[in-house]
């Protein structure tokens, strides 16, 4: 299932679309801009969706802060 949050960006933010591009001779040497390996809708190999992985990272951070606070209190 495509992950809807990624192309839209964070809630409330303007779309991260970079807008119209000016002619860019510096990029022309890289070859044609194909979209191989570049689909933001590609789901992660585990975790179900990107939103679930983001929630896991955020949850890990909150858990770590709680553990560090408990660690601090335990040894003071």
């Amino acid at each position: 299932m495509p992950d809807p949050a990624v192309p839209r960006g964070p809630a409330g933010a303007v779309s991260p679309d970079p807008g119209p591009r000016a002619p860019d001779p510096g990029l022309s040497d890289h070859g044609p801009r194909t979209t191989d390996h570049a689909s933001p809708d590609e789901p992660p190999p585990f975790g179900g969706s990107w939103n679930a992985l983001y929630a896991a990272v955020a949850g890990t951070l909150l858990t770590l802060i709680a553990l560090f606070a408990a660690f601090t209190r335990a040894f003071e």
């Binding site: 991260p16 970079p18 990029l27 070859g31 801009r33 979209t35 570049a38 933001p40």
Partner: peptide, 14 residues
């Protein structure tokens, strides 16, 4: 991961 990486990939920048 949600914003910058898709843009860099779409534009194929170095």
């Amino acid at each position: 991961s949600a914003t910058a990486v898709p843009i860099y990939y779409r534009l194929k920048v170095y």
